[in-house]
Design a protein around this nucleic acid. Structure first.
Length: 499
RNA sequence: GCCCCCAUCGUCUAGUGGACUAGGAUGUCAGCCUUUCAAGCUGAAGACAGGGGUUCGAAGCCCCUUGGGGGCACCA
């Protein structure tokens, strides 16, 4: 049906960091473009000078790249339809706004922001119609000229048709109709000469030859306005597809712009960089984001980019809003962590461990104990930042067991625990072969000698060695940590119980 | 208040009139494994919002109700 090459854009506003919702929009655009052999354009909509946030641009760029969403045209890569910052295209918007005025399709409005706000307030009080009452639309040429001569500042508003309706087609939702009487004479050009979203968006999409607009559902109600703009300009509108909004994890309301504290106290981050920092893998987040509003085949949950690309179909995107399934992301990230090699995991872990323990990355990279423990760590992580809590004992110089009772498992006496620790220390001090297997063999023999159960010996040892209730498996931990430290810690703990 | 969109297990979803006693995943619970925690394996509970139509036949089409969401800026 579409003969021209597909060109889509992701058009964030640099007013904040890249949100997972925005990332999902970018992802679907990217998927659509790449699966249709088209172009993915990144355009920065920086026309809001009040909310401009200087760090957000870099964050958006970094986050998109981290997710692997590369753009064909846009910031830092250029392209034939540039510039890709709206702040650098101001004359274009002014020119076309003036053109609309000259054509009688738009008009200067001299009302101040305060006047318009007052208007709105009155209407709200009376529960009547909403918005600007169009008083400047009916000004005579003389009145207009007089105000202009008096130096009154003005905005340019679109003169939308007062009657009739507009019906447009959405690639996900089908035909949608709005009555023109519900529409506003929206501001196109602000009094400072900068364009609003509506104008800039339509002008840019046209001159950048955008063929499809995939964006959030929250834009659906501004389509009729844009449609009339295309009409006024005499331009061919693109194909619209409105993606379902992502709701808060509890399903209530559009996903918040700042981190979400759930009822149980757990925190759900909303920025892509937060997930990056928290040790999520980009492939996992990519895969996960694909699954909000779209499904590969209804069966397969774990799939790579190529697979997604081969199957992606915009018409199969869900129309209904959906909650952000945070727990599923946890699980999925664990799956992706388990898929990488031990060595890859070790490297990925270094910065996180460095930060957690204040040890230089180079030192950690050379740490043989860490290397030995990676395989046992591997299947215990949902995210990279889970690692420090599991292996803190490697970097604690001295272990201080706060409560000696922690060394005593249930169904075990204090004396039994002390005996077990002492015996294990003595045995390990003289053990010839120092491997997980030999350690295990010797310890099991010891258990039989002492006539105790595994848990009665391993439990105290775990606490004595790691000062943690949860740790990687004992035998490899012992092997990794080294004889001297192990024996010392066991004896120290035994002494604690003797006291 | 007005307009628009939407409606399948708690959650993400499969389903495009008959293969639906509604499938997968996550989460939950139970069992196995087991030195803790994970991972893994096995099993269980768990949904077509309600009511009318249309049809031989409806989760899927139409209408109404209800519920949810979005929008109504010189923000995007």
């Amino acid at each position: 049906m579409t003969t021209s090459p597909v060109r889509v854009r992701f058009a964030p506003s640099p007013t904040g960091f890249l949100h997972v919702g925005g990332a999902r929009t970018a992802l679907f655009n990217w998927l659509f473009a790449r699966s249709r052999d088209g172009q993915f354009i990144l355009r920065i909509e920086d026309t809001d000078r009040k909310r401009y946030h200087p760090q957000s641009l870099q964050d958006i760029l970094d986050s998109l790249r981290w997710l692997g969403l590369d753009w064909d045209e846009g910031p830092e890569v250029g392209g034939p339809y540039g510039p890709y910052f709206q702040s650098q295209r101001l004359p274009l918007y002014q020119e076309w706004a003036d053109w609309l005025v000259a054509q009688g399709k738009a008009y200067h409005c001299f009302c101040t922001a305060a006047e318009v706000e007052a208007m709105r307030q009155t209407q709200r009080d009376q529960q009547g119609a909403q918005g600007y009452d169009r008083r400047c639309r009916w000004l005579t040429p003389e009145e207009r000229a007089a105000r202009q001569a008096a130096g009154h500042s003005s905005v340019i508003r679109l003169a939308v048709p007062l009657q009739g309706a507009v019906t447009f087609h959405d690639a996900i939702r089908g035909d949608i109709t709005f009555n023109n009487k519900e529409l506003q004479d929206a501001v196109l050009l602000k009094s400072d000469g900068w364009p609003t979203y509506h104008l800039a968006n339509v002008v840019d999409d046209h001159f950048m030859a955008i063929t499809h607009i995939l964006r959030g559902d929250e834009w659906l109600s501004s389509v009729p306005l844009h449609w009339h703009l295309y009409q006024a300009f005499g331009w061919q509108p693109p194909v619209w597809a409105h993606l379902p909004v992502i709701l808060n994890p509890n399903g209530q309301g559009k996903m918040k712009k700042r981190e979400i504290v759930q009822a149980d106290g757990t925190i759900v981050p909303v920025y892509v960089h937060s997930y990056r920092q928290a040790g999520y893998l980009p492939d996992a987040l990519f895969n996960f984001l694909c699954g909000i509003g779209w499904a590969l085949d209804g069966e397969t949950e774990i799939y790579d980019r190529e697979t997604a690309l081969a199957a992606f179909d915009i018409a199969k995107v869900q129309a209904s809003p959906g909650a952000f399934p945070a727990e599923k992301l946890e699980w999925m990230n664990g799956v992706y962590i388990r898929q990488i090699t031990h060595e890859a995991l070790r490297h990925a872990l270094l910065p996180h461990l460095s930060q957690a323990f204040g040890v230089p990355v180079e030192t950690l990279a050379a740490d043989e104990r860490l290397r030995l423990l990676i395989p046992d760590l591997h299947e215990r992580l949902k995210k990279l930042t889970d690692a420090p809590a599991l292996i803190g004992f490697l970097f604690a110089g001295d272990i201080a067991i706060a409560n000696p009772e922690d060394l005593i498992p249930r169904n075990t006496t204090r004396e039994q625990a002390r005996q077990a620790l002492t015996a294990a220390a003595g045995m390990l001090a003289g053990l010839e072969s120092w491997t997980p297997d030999s350690i295990e063999g010797a310890l099991r023999a010891l258990i039989a000698d002492l006539n105790l159960k595994p848990g009665q010996v391993f439990g105290p040892m775990r606490v004595a060695i790691t000062n943690q209730a949860v740790s990687p498996p004992l035998f490899s931990t012992i092997a990794a940590v080294g004889r001297e430290t192990i024996v010392a810690r066991l004896r120290q703990a035994a002494a604690l119980l003797a006291a």
